[in-house]
């Protein structure tokens, strides 16, 4: 018997693990106005799930690969000036639709699609937990390593060029981090709600922060609190866990937005 035997503890740890990576990455998504970019990458993961089921691949691997391809595709298109809302919207929703259709055509598998769309955090295994924390660790190290360069590019790409930083390379780093977060978050909140784990804690942290670093750390704290409280409420009221976590995060966002508005009066 160990403490990881309890499914509830595993769920809490998995949720916190996702938040640890998603919250600071989400800050960049907010600063760089990449929310739709996040949606496109996350929705493409369902295509990855279909791919994994069809070829009997591990779900995580398939989702990671397809999300990464999608992230690279979207970032190269936006570099060429195609960054229209329309194109991103088409890609986000069409990959989702094709993924869903593909899964339904697979006659040899009977899966509960809901668990991929909205997550199944209470069914997280020890192996899933290990994957989540490994991904969180790699994503965090990536952000830590490139922090200063990423921030400079976010402020202004010409200032970055002048300091010898390549905006293209930093965009690539962000795409890679995004694909990692999407792949690890499928089980926890599901593809439809991944973007919310990116942008809601980050936006909630904004009115309470005066530097980018404080915003990233606060976003992690808010995200962890949302996971703990959200799981608790979902247990109390028998509601789906992923959506409940997102609801709690949104409450934090509203409270912090109100605080920000009051302070500016």
């Amino acid at each position: 018997m160990s403490f990881l035997d309890d499914f509830f503890i595993r769920a809490v740890l998995a949720g916190i693990g996702v938040g640890l990576a998603a919250a600071p990455l989400g800050c960049f998504v907010v600063w760089r106005k990449m929310a739709y970019f996040g949606d496109a990458t996350a929705h493409a993961a369902i295509l990855g799930v279909a791919f994994s089921l069809a070829f009997e691949f591990h779900i995580f691997g398939g989702a990671l690969v397809i999300s990464l391809i999608m992230a690279l595709l979207v970032s190269s298109l936006s570099e060429k000036g195609y960054s229209s809302d329309t194109l991103l919207g088409v890609m986000a929703h069409s990959t989702l639709a094709f993924g869903l259709v593909w899964v339904s055509l697979l006659s040899h598998v009977r899966v509960d699609l809901m668990s991929y769309l909205f997550g199944d955090i209470l069914a997280v295994t020890r192996f899933d937990l290990m994957v989540v924390w490994l991904c969180a660790a790699s994503c965090l190290s990536l952000l830590w390593w490139r922090w200063s360069s990423l921030l400079t590019v976010t402020v202004n790409s010409d200032l970055a060029y002048a300091s010898g930083i390549s905006p293209k390379r930093e965009q690539l780093i962000l795409s890679l981090a995004l694909a990692l977060v999407v792949a690890m978050a499928i089980k926890v909140v599901g593809v439809l709600l991944i973007t919310s784990m990116l942008i809601i804690p980050a936006s909630a942290a904004r009115p309470l922060s005066n530097t980018p670093e404080k915003m990233a750390i606060l976003a992690i704290v808010i995200s962890a609190l949302s996971v703990v409280l959200g799981l608790h409420f979902s247990y109390l009221f028998d509601t789906p866990s992923g959506p409940t976590i997102v609801c709690v995060a949104t409450m934090f966002f509203l409270a912090s937005a109100m605080y920000g508005a009051l302070r500016r009066l």
């Binding site: 600063w31 976010t154 402020v155 202004n156 200032l159 904004r206 922060s209 005066n210 530097t211 980018p212």
Partner: peptide
């Protein structure tokens, strides 16, 4: 150069 409100700096 424009720095957006969303970035606390």
């Amino acid at each position: 150069l424009h720095i957006d409100y969303t970035l606390p700096l």
